[in-house]
Design a protein around this nucleic acid. Structure first.
Lengths: 133, 133
DNA sequence: CATGATCGCGGGTATATACCCGTTTCTGAT
DNA sequence: ATCAGAAACGGGTATATACCCGCGATCATG
């Protein structure tokens, strides 16, 4: 039937495209949307272990570990130890808070732009559909 | 406002999730959905240069080049030369055709499953929304 | 309290993705 | 025919992502 359009490929394409919108907006701060979003999640859960964070963002733990290491190298988060010596606890650095503050309006801009293009109704549709997949 | 859900992150998450559905279905063949889809595109355009293929699938040329190299190593495609000595022309091998044939029903299964879950109306909505982004 | 099971991580490996740069090949204008 | 510019590609670098394996820490049970 619809041999021409695979839901998966359309999703991936849209995902890359939309990611690039956010990436461009955040570029002045030196972070991409994945990093910015991860930073937000860490702030929300801080202090948080890799495993818990991975669970929240629905990514593999090893992926989150590697992404976190990039943020650490950028001095945006600190990776320390919890009472449980196995756990790597993540916290936001002052520099990380700066990026979060400076990035917020940039992020809002892209978000608004997308919602304006779609309109409130389709925005809600999109949200529902993505959750239903 | 909706600080909790970034369109981009929701898209990326859905993209990973849906990709995994297709990946699981295609796993017996040893290819993932990205490879299978690329293979289909090559068949459709064969013989095709990296640049043209990249344009069709909306990926960076270097990305397509690297992905193609994986398919070549799997003996699913051949990378030869065109009249223009600069161009790398891609063609499907017999083994590649086998994978395409064997993968078709598996791919259809996932596609149908998703459409069944969403219903025809929402499936169409999704398609439109993704194209509108 | 000792020990086997479980948990949390790091690192290896592989693919996906993009950007940039250098090299080879073509093309078009002179 | 020549040569500047453009086009096509490969490879370097960096991040993103997942799976698997092994190691050290913790916990539960006998």
């Amino acid at each position: 039937m619809s041999t021409t359009s695979c839901h998966c490929i359309l999703l991936r394409r849209a995902s890359r495209k939309v990611s690039s919108y956010y990436d461009e907006a955040l570029a002045p701060l030196g972070v991409n949307i994945g990093q910015f979003s991860l930073l937000r999640n860490i702030r929300k859960l801080e202090p948080v272990s890799l495993t818990e964070l991975a669970h929240r963002v629905e990514l593999d733990r090893s992926t989150v570990g590697r992404n976190a290491k990039v943020l650490e190298r950028m001095r945006l988060i600190a990776i320390g130890h919890g009472d449980d010596q196995r756990e790597a606890m993540l916290t936001i650095t002052p520099r990380g808070h700066e990026i979060l503050d400076q990035g917020a309006p940039l992020w809002d801009g892209v978000q608004d732009q997308i919602e304006a293009r779609l309109g409130p109704e389709k925005t809600e549709q999109l949200r529902e559909l993505l959750a239903a997949l």
